[in-house]
């Protein structure tokens, strides 16, 4: 019953989203594309940060690498963009998987700091690699129309939500939940935690790269500082936390809410938007520590225990 209601709600939201380009103007479509992009990114972040409990501060690395790699393959290697896009997404996925293996051995703050460094290091490497456009950035051919990019971004956001939904209702999702709840116990029941965490990180990277690849051709000009902007990771994190970490709808809700808030604040003044975002973050932490969806959920889930997080001594 509850499941049917949720499906119905999801269908309504999707229908509404599909109607935006024909019924509104270019400005709204532009804002909508950005929201869809962030919904996809936050959804990707949610896989590692929300479901697995590893708050990554470096997910922008996948977005940036996806964008720059696709741009480079198409502009410098003259590949057709669709092929460059696929290669870039897969390449970034492998990149995430391989880096996940060492990074995910770290826990808590150490993991967060290491991922922060990962994003900065990737930026440095990309900036200094001529093939990837270097510090100059790249101009891509202008193609398509705003409406098309809106629909493509929306598809990635839907894909992101779909992956999350399927994960949560699968055995693999339970595995991630077990790791989040008590990693040593997860190991002790026979879960290959390194593999499970790394594949969640890779999935997260794949979604980030997809958004990056579309962002590159949508903006038609990209340069490393823009696509590796640390605040993109922060937005993914805040949106997921605000909407509800570990839920399907949370990242989408967060992306739409923050998107609307930012636009409203921008209408007042350019600087007000950071102020609103900051106040929003404080409000979430204070009043909705589990996010909007997380607070609605009761029964299943329950409190995470605070003490005994490191039961390895003994």
């Amino acid at each position: 019953m509850k499941r049917q209601r949720n499906m119905f709600l999801a269908a309504c939201v999707l229908l509404l989203a599909l109607c935006i380009p024909p019924l509104t103007n270019d400005y709204i479509v532009q804002v909508g594309t950005e929201m869809a992009m962030y919904a996809a990114l936050a959804g990707g972040w949610n896989l590692i940060g929300g479901l697995t409990g590893y708050p990554s501060f470096g997910n922008v690395a996948f977005f940036g690498l996806g964008a720059m790699l696709a741009g480079a393959l198409s502009v410098n290697a003259h590949w057709p963009y669709w092929l460059a896009a696929i290669a870039s997404v897969l390449g970034t996925g492998v990149f995430a998987l391989l880096l996940g293996l060492p990074l995910l051995r770290l826990k808590g703050h150490y993991f967060s700091i290491a991922t922060l460094a990962l994003a900065q290091a990737t930026l440095a490497v990309v900036t200094n690699t001529k093939f990837l456009g270097g510090g100059m950035g790249m101009s891509l051919p202008i193609v398509g129309s705003p409406g098309i990019f809106y629909y493509v971004m929306l598809s990635i956001a839907v894909l992101s939500a779909l992956i999350t939904y399927l994960l949560i209702h699968s055995e693999y999702g339970n595995t991630l939940l077990a790791i989040k709840s008590d990693e040593v116990a997860a190991q002790a029941v026979g879960i290959n935690t390194v593999l499970a965490k790394s594949s969640a990180f890779a999935l997260s990277g794949l979604l980030g790269a997809m958004a990056g690849v579309v962002y590159a051709i949508w903006q038609s000009y990209i340069d490393p500082p823009t696509v590796f902007e640390p605040s993109i990771t922060v937005l993914m994190l805040v949106m997921t936390m605000m909407g509800g970490a570990g839920t399907v709808a949370g990242p989408i809700l967060g992306a739409v809410l923050i998107g609307i808030l930012t636009q409203l604040a921008m209408a007042v003044s350019q600087n007000a938007s950071s102020l609103v975002l900051g106040l929003g973050i404080i409000a979430v932490v204070l009043f909705l520590p589990k996010g909007i969806m997380g607070s609605r959920r009761s029964g299943k889930g329950g409190k995470r225990r605070g003490k005994n997080t490191f039961p390895l001594r003994g």
Partner: peptide
């Protein structure tokens, strides 16, 4: 050997302090 390998071989540990998955049923 890795822990999951040991479990596969039939070794299992009931840990002190129980290590349950508190959020799960």
């Amino acid at each position: 050997k890795d822990t999951y390998h040991m479990v596969k071989q039939g070794l299992n540990m009931t840990p002190q302090g129980r290590w349950l998955f508190a959020g799960m049923s």
